[in-house]
């Protein structure tokens, strides 16, 4: 640019002066669009949740009326209860399967790559697709029940999907089928990152392979347990398509989840205010999971920094 001893041409220096501004002109719009849409949309939905909006948004403040009616509704109570059952079952089952597979795959297995590819493929396919297929398998009149009966076991029953008390567990099974390969991948990466010296020390002490896992590897990867569980928990809160395709929330309200309630209120019943209140409650559920996790991550970072 402005090389010493040779004065720059006026046009050039004009451009040089403009350059930093030009950069900001390019740099900011996409950043601003994302920031504004995240903050603005969250703020707007929160505002609508305090108004009497029905089919079209209104701008009158009605306090907590929508929240009260959502929280008092049977629909929401059942959805929350289902979320707790689904969340617990799904997280426990998925973590257990994922960890088992990771430990077994770590035993110098032939065809490890093929097996991993098979375990993880459900994550690449739409929940709508998998939900549809699962709904056939679970449908007693055409799926597994009919297959087993056809093989000669006439009294066999597997009708969870139409059973009000059991339907939620079919969501647990389909969800675990979908996500356990992902949990496996995270655990395996963690196991493989454990310091080789720790293994050696344990081996010199004469510890067998299972003892090494219990005493050395698993304690070393505990942060991964927490990460996996948090990821799975936030999946459960956001789950929509799987249930929509598998049971549609039914039978009755047996598999209703908060995400379905939001959709139902907003677009089926045309109650934007109440739907927004339900969406904000969903966000609060999510924050209840994520905020402690972020605090935990920060705490670990600071501790690691201090201990070098």
């Amino acid at each position: 640019m402005n090389v010493q001893g040779r004065p720059a041409a006026p046009r050039r220096s004009w451009r040089a002066a403009l350059a930093p501004w030009l950069v900001h002109l390019v740099l900011w719009p996409p950043l601003l669009v994302s920031v504004v849409h995240i903050i603005g949309f969250t703020g707007y939905t929160s505002w609508i949740s305090f108004t009497s909006s029905t089919l079209i948004p209104e701008n009158d403040f009605v306090g907590l009326r929508n929240y009260n009616s959502v929280l008092a509704s049977r629909n929401w109570a059942i959805a929350t209860e289902n979320l707790l059952i689904f969340g617990t079952g799904f997280v426990v089952l998925t973590t257990a399967i994922g960890l088992t597979l990771a430990v077994l795959l770590d035993q110098r297995i032939r065809a490890e790559n093929v097996l991993r590819t098979i375990y993880l493929y459900p994550m690449a396919v739409s929940f709508v697709v998998t939900g549809t297929v699962w709904s056939w398998l679970l449908n007693p009149s055409i799926g597994i029940q009919k297959l087993v009966r056809g093989l000669g076991w006439e009294a066999f029953r597997f009708d969870w999907v139409v059973d009000r008390d059991m339907a939620i567990y079919t969501i647990v099974i389909a969800g675990a089928w979908q996500a356990s390969g992902f949990a496996m991948a995270l655990f395996l990466a963690g196991i493989r990152s454990v310091d080789a010296d720790l293994y050696k020390a344990a081996q010199i002490d004469g510890a067998g392979p299972w003892r090494i896992y219990r005493r050395v590897v698993l304690p070393a990867i505990w942060p991964i347990f927490i990460a996996v569980m948090v990821i799975l928990l936030q999946y459960t809160i956001k789950t929509f398509d799987l249930v929509r395709a598998l049971t549609g929330g039914g039978p009755g309200l047996a598999t209703q989840l908060p995400s379905l309630v939001v959709y139902d209120l907003m677009f089926q019943r045309g109650l934007l205010g109440r739907g927004s209140a339900a969406a904000v409650l969903m966000l609060l559920y999510l924050l209840a999971v994520l905020l402690p996790y972020f605090a935990f991550v920060q705490w670990r970072k600071r501790r690691n920094a201090r201990h070098g």
Binding site: L31, I38, F41, Y44, T45, P57, I237, A279, V280, L286
Partner: peptide
């Protein structure tokens, strides 16, 4: 700050954006 807010967008449930969209 900008990065922090954009990261929030990863976690924000889609339901929060349906009405504004």
């Amino acid at each position: 700050w900008v990065f922090g807010i954009i990261t929030l967008g990863v976690f924000l449930p889609e339901q929060m954006k349906l009405v504004p969209w």
